[in-house]
Design a protein around this nucleic acid. Structure first.
Lengths: 322, 322
DNA sequence: AACATCTACTAGAGCGCTCTAGTCACGAGC
DNA sequence: GCTCGTGACTAGAGCGCTCTAGTAGATGTT
């Protein structure tokens, strides 16, 4: 910075003014400083810049590197954060890198708030974190003091899936659940409510959130086929595994069995899978998350939880029963 | 820090010493300082700490949030970086966030080196970046001045796939390629060499890197089935899409058609897919990348390109031809 | 007793920025 | 002719840390 100032024949303060686009420099000087900066390959040091200010405008995000849906969400968060003048620091959660580890590294970078995608931490651990900075849980409806939640209305989402199947004429529908994954309880509940409301019986089979879980569920299903004509699954990944396995059996989809996923991941949308699914509104989730974080940071009490309505995306894995 | 020092009755410098685990503090004082820090919830500011030092020990990583293989690699990079005393800054590349954008944000954080997973930037753009700091391309064998490359020996990988099929008795093998994706040329070449070396004819069908590309390739394949008994695909994602579509046809896998993927992603490994595939050694790739970065940063000329041998993982999608 | 050598600690500069409080020149207004 | 306002610019402190140089006191050595 010193060098740039010298080359442009001005003070360091003026260089700062120019690079911040702040008022107080003539157009001629501005151009001269920028030219000097370019020549020397100068870039302001983001860290040093932040040091002096109280606000860092840095939001920390933990995400699971293996979850496609988290990828979609991260992308949406980037846009939303940028629009609100925030910067994002990513920290991956993976089998060899547990959530507390990911969170600690964000804390070291002085993030103003923590955005956790489907956190697996205990409510008490989350509350403890929330004592030092705002914490927002996306997707998991956790009840922990000080922790804000932004999530999809999963009860409504499951209901949408069931109602879609009912409207096609199905009366016997199975739900393969997500076990203990965040959101699994709500999706199960939504399914049960919708089925009972229609006057039919609920059938729930234990499942999980990975392709392997879906495939296992399909094997169990094929072993002793329950008398159902349709299945709703916890998410698209499980639905993929389920479909893969079912397709190796004589059962035709959707003729013999309709299948509905959840999340509307890019793979579900791709022409070969063409999975009927429930779409979470990632844009709205991201925007609301940033809004909530901003509110907390500026002292406005945010409305929490924020619940975003999902939508049904009918594709080719659902049809009227035979 | 000031507060901690006051509470513990010592100077700021001593607090620094204690938190850096540096010599020069008695055990008693050490304990007293840590206790004071804990009481006040003190965490050293990572940014300020780095300000004073020339080295930041921060490595910037760009990755594609949609590529499962990048997820595996990021995880391995975290471990390798930690072992070498480096920290990682992640920056995602996504449809709405192009690579130059992702790189810029890393530069703002004063990363000492740039690690780019399968970069799509032009060689000249990469060279320009390499002028200001070390740049390492993982996976893409780019020839650009100053840019180091760490990659899997993809020619050998494709050869492994072909030789595996040959050893099972296949003589007519199709390769569905990855188009312009980094690595696609090498994998195509490896296939061609191995086939010709065995005295058979090479058949290449254009493909791509996504599930949808694989599914499209399968449709083309089914439309006018070429006289082959086995297929090698550019990667696991394409293989997934391919398999999905083939399974909806009367063709049995592996009885009628053997299929080999590439990358050994978690999904390929999962019991329901059980895809025979070529495994890239992510641990070695990550370790070599960090080693290369470290060498560049400490002035030692690194050996570049680093080429890691892949291995074949035989699973259930390959069998002798009928 | 005089000196060297430790260990345990502190003062203060410096990292690359931003921000506050100025200075200075110039023109408008009375 | 004087003040006053304004635009363009600068000096220097301060952000939270680390590092160098140094001090004070205990211990060992001759």
């Amino acid at each position: 910075m010193e060098d740039v100032a010298r080359l442009a024949g001005v003070s360091r303060a003026l260089v700062s003014i120019v690079y911040r686009d702040a008022p107080g420099a003539s157009d001629a000087t501005r151009a001269r400083v920028l030219a000097a900066g370019k020549e020397l390959g100068y870039r302001p040091d983001h860290r040093a810049r932040l040091l002096g200010r109280t606000r860092t405008r840095l939001l920390g995000v933990t995400f699971d590197v293996r979850a496609p849906f988290h990828g979609d969400l991260v992308e949406a968060l980037y846009s939303a954060a940028e629009a609100a003048g925030y910067d994002l620091a990513l920290s991956a959660v993976a089998p060899s890198r547990a959530e507390p580890r990911a969170v600690q590294s964000l804390l070291d970078y002085r993030c103003e708030a923590l955005i956790l995608l489907g956190p697996q931490l205990s409510p008490s651990a989350l509350s403890a974190l929330a004592e030092s900075q705002p914490v927002i849980s996306i997707g998991r409806n956790v009840r922990a003091a000080g922790v804000d939640v932004v999530r999809t209305d999963d009860v409504a989402g499951s209901r949408l899936a069931v109602e879609h199947l009912l409207s096609l004429g199905h009366t016997s529908i199975l739900h393969i659940d997500g076990g203990k994954t965040p959101g699994a309880t709500e999706r199960r509940t939504g399914y049960r409510k919708a089925i009972r409301h229609a006057g039919f019986e609920a059938h729930v089979q234990p499942g999980g959130r990975t392709e392997a879980d879906g495939a296992d569920a399909a094997k169990t299903f094929l072993n002793e086929p329950p008398p159902v004509t349709a299945v709703t699954l916890f998410n698209d990944r499980a639905a993929m595994g389920f479909l893969d396995t079912i397709r190796q059996s004589p059962l035709e989809i959707p003729a013999d069995l309709s299948v509905v996923g959840y999340d509307n991941t890019a793979i579900a949308a791709s022409s070969h899978l063409n999975l009927t699914t429930v779409a979470q509104n990632t844009t709205a989730l991201a925007t609301q998350t940033i809004t909530t974080a901003h509110a907390r940071l500026t002292g406005t009490p945010p409305t929490s939880p924020v619940v975003i309505p999902p939508t049904l995306v009918p594709r080719c894995t659902t049809a009227p029963p035979r």
